[in-house]
Nucleic acid binder design. Sequence first.
DNA 1: AATTATTTGCAACTCAGTTGAAAAAGTTTA
DNA 2: TAAACTTTTTCAACTGAGTTGCAAATAATT
Lengths: 144, 144
Amino acid sequence: MSDRCDFREALVQRRLRPTPLRLRVLETLGSENRAWQAREILDAIRARRPVNKVSVYRILDDLTRLGLVRKLPSEGAAAHYELACEHHPPHPHFQCQTCGAVQCLEPVPLEHIWREIDPLGNRADRLEIRVEGLCRRCQGIDAS
Amino acid sequence: MSDRCDFREALVQRRLRPTPLRLRVLETLGSENRAWQAREILDAIRARRPVNKVSVYRILDDLTRLGLVRKLPSEGAAAHYELACEHHPPHPHFQCQTCGAVQCLEPVPLEHIWREIDPLGNRADRLEIRVEGLCRRCQGIDAS
DNA sequence: AATTATTTGCAACTCAGTTGAAAAAGTTTA
DNA sequence: TAAACTTTTTCAACTGAGTTGCAAATAATT
């Protein structure tokens, strides 16, 4: 999945310095077609260098606020994060009820889904579609 | 919203004793057309009698496992719960990004939404549609 | 009434995420 | 380039949601 987005550029555009840590967080998010828990990102980076968890949380918050990362609602305690840059438009997600992993599904046209939904006078900004079930791995379809 | 479901009956069917506490939890969930945090349920019940939070969490877990309650994924730390009995089929939800409240929206036909989605070989069991935005109250449309 | 099973409460814990302030690193100015 | 300033990262301590193990209380069964 090695990403086509220029993270350095994306950070500079948003007036955030392209520090090694911010770049590592973005590279990690872009390295697999799935959403990551803060904890997983932390561990992935710690495999190569020491990092403090507060730094990762603050970076994820900043990037989310600036629209470079999306924070997904999730079943269970920990939030999930994914890239939100130009090559990653919004799309549905699949969460396995057994292992908890969150995969990204292909984008679907949202127009007629929006048309079905009556937001009851609330201002609707964002639509998230979540599928839950049993993933391939947990069904034993895949090896390993 | 006072509910049409017979909670006492629903509990007995599931081999759970219809204790005052379980009934209070269900009545609370059924008292408004929205999803509740465990904390909110706890506070609502405590307005009338003492309860321990562990009891409420356990009751919510049991009811969720037995299909009388649905646990919703949510933005933020705390999970939300809603009734899942016969008069409350699955439906989309709206969460306000400002106050965090989760409202229930009208059910939508899911068949052609399912048709759009490729679950990539995973077994899909459940579909949750979440709308996020700014609720009427937080827009200042409603009084109070 | 005595025994047993279920439910609730209590205390102590875990884990995700936050806060405030200090240390470190990078940038700007003189 | 040294001093002053800004931004980023770290550290320690905390909050709040949810869990665990076990004891107390309650209800059902013999």
